[in-house]
Structure formats: C-alpha cells, structure tokens
Design a protein around this nucleic acid. Sequence first.
DNA 1: CCGTAGATGGCCT
DNA 2: GGCCATCTACGGA
Length: 238
Amino acid sequence: MKLPASYYQQNDVVHIAKDLIGKVIVSMVDDKRTAGIITETEAYRGVGDKACHAHLGRFTDRTKIMYENGGVAYVYLCYGIHNLFNIITNTDQQADAVLIRAAEPTEGIEHMLHRRGKEKLDKTLTSGPGNFSKAFGLDRSHYGEDLTGDLVWIEDAEVFAQEVAERSQSYLDDSSKQITSAHFDFDQRPPLNDIGSDKIISKEDIITSKRIGIDYAEEDADLPWRFYLWSSQFVSKR
DNA sequence: CCGTAGATGGCCT
DNA sequence: GGCCATCTACGGA
C-alpha cells in the first residue's frame, strides 16, 4: 500500500508527477491523521531545469536535500509565508522534485479546518501548494522526512475519476450543512457500473499545462510539466 | 465576477 | 538589496 523508495527513485520525474495524480497522501502530524487524493502536481527536473531550485547544480543548505536519493521530502518557505511540500525523486545527485499543489480531502477534515482556521469546507481548504501543506500540517520541520516512514507517505489507491467528481461536488453542494468531518472508505466503493465510469484514473483524466508562478524560468516556463485531475474541484487553477 | 496590492522572511551556485 | 514554485482581502464593475 505505502509507496516504496523504489517508486520515488524512478528516473523520470515528469512521469512520476503525472502518476502521482490519484494516489493518496497521508500525514500523521501531532497524532492527527489527515489524508487526501493528490489532484495537482508539478515536476521540477533537476540541474537542467531553469525553474528548479537545483538549476545548474545550485547547492545550499536549502537545496542540499534535493541531491539525496528519491523518497524524501523537500519543504521550503515561499514568499516568507507559505511552506511548499515537494517529493524528491530519482537517484542520488539528480535533484528532481515533484511539488504537491493540491489534494482532495478524504480523512481528518476537522484537523485540516482547524489548521487552516476555517469553519467550513470549501475548495480552498487543500488547493494551492501553500494551502495544501498547511491543511496537512506539513512545514519545514519535515524537511528531509523519509516518505517510507510513519509521518508522511503516499499510498497507491484505485480511485475512479467519476467517483472523485461526485464526491468532490457533494462536498461543495453540502456546504450549507457545514461538513466538519468525512471519511472515505475505499472498500465501500460501489461496483463499476454504478458509478458511471469504467476506468480508474488514467491518462485521459489528467490535464497537462505549464507550471505556475515561474515566469523567471524563461523558455522552461512553458514546459508542460503541471498535471491535474479534470474531475476534482480541489485544483488551484484550471 | 475580476485584478491587484500587501504580507513576510529566507535565500543568495 | 532584490527576488521569490503564494494567498487573501479588498476595491471596482
């Protein structure tokens, strides 16, 4: 269930970024379990990528973790306010990373609301990289955290795109009821024919676009290395 | 609805 | 000193 180190050590960060869409990220911070389906990612491809913090081999106290073997967290502070959570991929010295930009909450929504200082569930709870990290309790104290450990990890899950769409919409439709908790049990998933879709999340369910907020990266700013799930409301920007 | 200013702090191969 | 892998509130239409 928990993705092994070998998953993160694959050598194609763009492929991994896309493949992570639909998987489940879990954090267990302060004994509070929070989980969600990854709905938006971006790939940053090491020393050759002008948008990557490790561009041209930049090696500082901040970026040094990027050169480790894949399967650890790289968390940094952005604009002085936001903690951005990344996953290091590939092998030693490659410095590839995937930024987690959004997730659709499935467990521990009450903890997420509390961390975000919100009363009510809406799409901003966990969409946008700063918001995602805050809701999941992730910050720079998790710099270098081992993703095969028990604090933050990713699980494989057979999530159906249509199912995400329906639940996502029901969250938002229900806002008047002030949902403060929800639990998604994968074993309770209805049979295929009942959910109107005959496939798990596949390439056709994932939209590709250029990465956000990296205008300084010149021609690399246009690379199609951002991925998001068409069916989720929990995406930062369409 | 839309665009933008201001917050805020660490980084600086 | 200048620059950010951002977010929200707020003002105008």
